[in-house]
């Protein structure tokens, strides 16, 4: 498989971004039964591994759209309305791992998995921080509250889900990748 540029956005990126977004939304809804009631705005969602993985596998734009649009669609379907700052936060969860897209050569190797996991942590930290801090501005809570009620629960659940499922997806993908002939 040839990789040209980090920021390319051709037909393939369009398709994978759309698939990623739809998948993120569908899995979020389908696995809602694992909700942790104590967390504000967030639930335990294995689906969060999707934007991270799509970022790693298809680049930062695909990661960004997967997270951002996926979150929009999932909220649309659940009827939860539209929360732009949380959508952006979810987008960053996919965008940031996407930054090492060009360095991902062997999705099965320990080295690439470790690199990926580090980016997952950074992505969740940045993404959820941005979203939580926006709540200060929107809802008028203080920094400590936003950290306690928004950031920490969102960070923990997304990190746990991501760190466990991203490597599983990477290993599965390394098997699939050889089949297309590209």
């Amino acid at each position: 498989m040839e990789k040209k540029s980090l920021w390319a956005f051709g037909t393939r990126e369009v398709v994978y971004a759309a698939i990623g977004a739809a998948l993120y939304a569908v899995l979020s809804i389908a696995t809602n039964f694992l909700q942790i009631p104590a967390a504000a705005n967030v639930s335990i969602r294995p689906a969060v591994a999707i934007p991270m993985f799509f970022g790693l596998a298809f680049g930062p734009w695909v990661g960004l759209i997967t997270g951002l649009v996926g979150n929009v669609i999932s909220d649309l379907i659940s009827g939860y309305g539209f929360w732009p700052w949380w959508d952006l936060g979810n987008g960053l969860i996919g965008f940031i791992p996407g930054l090492i897209y060009l360095q991902m050569t062997d999705f099965r190797s320990l080295g690439d998995i470790i690199k990926a996991e580090i980016m997952v942590v950074v992505g969740v930290a940045v993404g959820m921080f941005v979203a939580s801090v926006s709540e200060i501005w929107v809802s008028g809570i203080d920094f400590a509250t936003s950290m306690a009620t928004n950031f920490v629960p969102a960070f923990i659940s997304n990190i746990v889900n991501g760190l466990i499922l991203v490597p599983i997806l990477m290993i599965a993908y390394s098997a699939v990748r050889g089949r297309s002939g590209r």
Binding site: R12, I19, I164, Y173, V176
Partner: peptide
């Protein structure tokens, strides 16, 4: 951890199938 790992039989086929159809 076990509970999340248990999602793999659902998440992996759906994701990989979607990627192949892409």
């Amino acid at each position: 951890f076990t509970q999340i790992r248990k999602m793999a039989p659902l998440v992996v086929p759906v994701t990989m199938n979607a990627i192949l159809s892409g």
